[in-house]
Design a protein around this nucleic acid. Structure first.
Length: 501
RNA sequence: GGUCGCGUGGCCGAGUGGCUAGGCACAGCUCUGCAAAAGCUGCUACUGCGGUUCGAAUCCGCACGCGACCUCCA
């Protein structure tokens, strides 16, 4: 039958700020690197949004036929807290607070991160490297950068020489910074006397005596710089130049800018061909962030136990909510928006259930169904436009419901779908909804045992008896009280069915 | 202060020059003992002021409002 056009895929390259056709370096293979979490505290919903964006990207690339190596790191060393704690490792600080070994903290929050990823149905990356497991490679990269003259040692630390690099290369290309402007905007450099320029950044940092996480190096005991691990691990597993690097918008500068500089300084190669940046999740217009204190954990989300939440929402509701906006737009969290998504997702999944029961008549795939299918692929291939794709699926929902003979509506069932149409729609909805968007049917909240279904069949039969004798008071009482228990009864043409509300 | 971006109907949120996005909410109708679900119909917006154009939410300028980054952050 009519074949769909699955390619080409276009994405917005934030390096060029243009939408470009995606052409892998070595098709059909694709190298994808995404900056993972720093495992020193719980991930919040804003983090989840970013990882979800790249989860869908990963899924989409595979769906359209690429073989993807997806690398997402775990940052378990190295980032500084703030001025007060200058020189002290973030993870070490937390360890002291909680009286735990640093690696215990790392393990704890890594486990927590994985739990969250499972909850939101994110696929595991191909490789999930940790910074602490790549210290040798990081030291080697520092050595290469020094050897090439773009870094210098000072008092046991090693700094990247930004002005020297910028003299020859385009430092600031990704984030649109200009070195003069950066210099004029520099804050006070207190405690940074070792740096030749305030723009220089540490690629190896000397550890103070009280520092808990430190390793020997040619420059003494210390730990790797903030941006080094991503350069090292992406190079190691994807090559000196690879296809796509993703991360949150807030990592663009300085993190990703420094990654580019490091790779060029160390190996002379531009590391990334396509940069992708996901936008922020906001709450009342402000970025959700640890420092803002406006984040909530997935656990709080599910239970609704947080001052921002009117009630709890399921992980799939949230996932659907996020995918109903474009990844490059900011997305504002609100209870009203969550409830709208909840209803929408229910409607979508109900249509999928209906679709499973449809038989369909004779005939070929209709042009309308073929067009719907193509529209979904086109939307996804246009910079991964999930909201448009979902809008098309909702058009499909109307088609499905209109073709449903079990519906009691007069006009329903009039729209004829062929058996081929039904099969095609099943394939499409399964692919888009579950495989690509990564949604899944919610597990039944209440234990859905055979016993419960038996009880329900009994209740339905008793209610049918009451209705048969026009005892509507009793039949309504049964239905209303079931509603109070979270069970909905629907009278359809094919009989009465029940479901969890 | 610098850089970048945003401002769409009751709410969320797509859309980059002309042709109804979609979801939620709301109203009417169909169906129905009543509901629920579903279908149909209605609600037709683009911060303000100029400009370009036959034509602008969409391009340009200015103003106002908001945000992100410039410091760890998805």
């Amino acid at each position: 039958m009519s074949s769909i056009k699955k390619l080409p895929f276009h994405l917005t390259n934030t390096l060029t700020r243009k939408k470009e056709e995606f052409v892998p370096l070595n098709p059909p293979h694709v190298g994808l690197y995404v900056c993972g979490p720093t495992v020193y505290s719980d991930v919040h919903l804003g983090n989840v949004r970013s990882f979800t964006t790249f989860d869908v990207l990963y899924r989409w690339l595979m769906h359209i036929g690429y073989k993807v190596r997806y690398v997402r790191n775990i940052t378990d060393v190295g980032h500084l807290v703030d001025d007060i704690d200058a020189g002290e490792d973030k993870i070490a600080k937390r360890a002291r607070l909680e009286q735990l070994e640093p690696m215990e903290i790392v393990q704890k929050y890594t486990n927590g991160f994985h739990d969250v990823m499972r909850l939101f149905n994110l696929r595991n990356p191909s490789i999930e490297p940790t910074a602490t497991a790549h210290l040798i490679e990081q030291i080697q990269m520092v050595e290469r950068i020094i050897a090439n003259g773009y870094a210098y040692e000072a008092n046991g630390s090693v700094y990247f020489d930004v002005p020297k690099f910028a003299a020859k290369y385009n430092y600031g290309e990704l984030s649109g910074r200009k070195i003069d402007e950066l210099l004029s905007n520099t804050r006070d450099t207190e405690g940074q006397e070792e740096k030749r320029s305030p723009l220089d950044f540490a690629i190896w940092k000397k550890a103070e005596a009280m520092h808990l996480m430190k390793w020997p190096s040619p420059w003494g005991e210390g730990f790797p710089g903030w941006h080094l691990e991503c350069s090292v691990m992406s190079t190691k597993y994807l090559g000196q130049t690879f296809d796509i690097h993703g991360g949150g918008m807030d990592l663009k500068f300085p993190h990703h800018e420094c990654e580019i500089a490091q790779s060029i300084a160390a190996d002379g190669t531009t590391p990334v061909r396509y940069w992708m940046h996901g936008n922020m999740l906001t709450v009342n217009g402000r970025k959700m962030a640890k420092s803002e204190g406006n984040g909530f954990t997935p656990e709080e989300l599910l239970t609704g136990n947080h001052k921002l939440l009117e009630r709890g929402y399921s992980a799939m509701t949230v996932r659907f909510f996020m995918l109903q906006s474009h990844y490059a737009s900011t997305l504002d969290f609100s209870n009203a928006a969550m409830q709208a998504s909840e209803k929408g997702l229910e409607k979508m999944l109900a249509a999928v259930a209906t679709l499973d029961k449809l038989k369909g008549g004779s005939g070929d795939v209709s042009p309308e169904v073929a067009a719907l299918e193509q529209a979904c692929y086109d939307a996804m291939n246009d910079d991964m436009n999930t909201p448009i794709m979902i809008a098309h699926l909702f058009d499909g929902v109307r088609t499905i419901n209109s073709a449903n003979p079990a519906s009691s509506a007069g006009q329903a069932g009039k729209l004829a779908l062929s058996g081929a149409d039904v099969e095609r729609l099943k394939t499409l909805f399964n692919a888009m909804l579950f495989e690509v968007l990564g949604l899944r049917k919610e597990e039944e909240v209440v234990g859905n045992s055979e016993a419960l279904d038996g009880v329900m069949q009994l209740m339905i039969a008793m209610r049918a008896e009451a209705k048969a004798t026009k005892n509507f008071a009793l039949s309504d009482k049964i239905r209303d009280q079931l509603v109070a228990l979270g069970i909905t009864i629907k009278d359809t043409k094919d009989g009465t069915v029940w479901e969890h509300a």
